[in-house]
Amino acid sequence: MFVAAAAAIIAALVLAPIRAFAGPSLYDRVLAGNSFGTKTVLLIGVMGFLTGRPDFLDIALLYALINFAATLAILRFFSYRTPKGEPAGPLNPPMNGGGAA
């Protein structure tokens, strides 16, 4: 059962970098990085149960903390990148990271 869970997580892990590579918007890439970190946490947890060492859960918790802090730090940079004259908001990404830029 843990093998199936690990395979499913690996499949999800493959999808996140594709979204980070393809974009098109900036938030797609941030979300891809964040969800990849979450999947890494899950993978380390499952890996611990696969090898019979549930202590890995502690490491997975630390990774979750790092992932949270890193995403906050990344998002903090966008609040200063609003183009002049346009209000920043959830519907108006301050910085276009896509290919059409």
Binding site: A16, P17, A20, F21, L26, R29, G33, F36, G37, G97
Partner: peptide, 10 residues
């Protein structure tokens, strides 16, 4: 470059 930064984090 933003995609490269996110991919390097990945």
């Amino acid at each position: 470059l933003f995609a490269v930064v996110m991919l390097s984090g990945i």
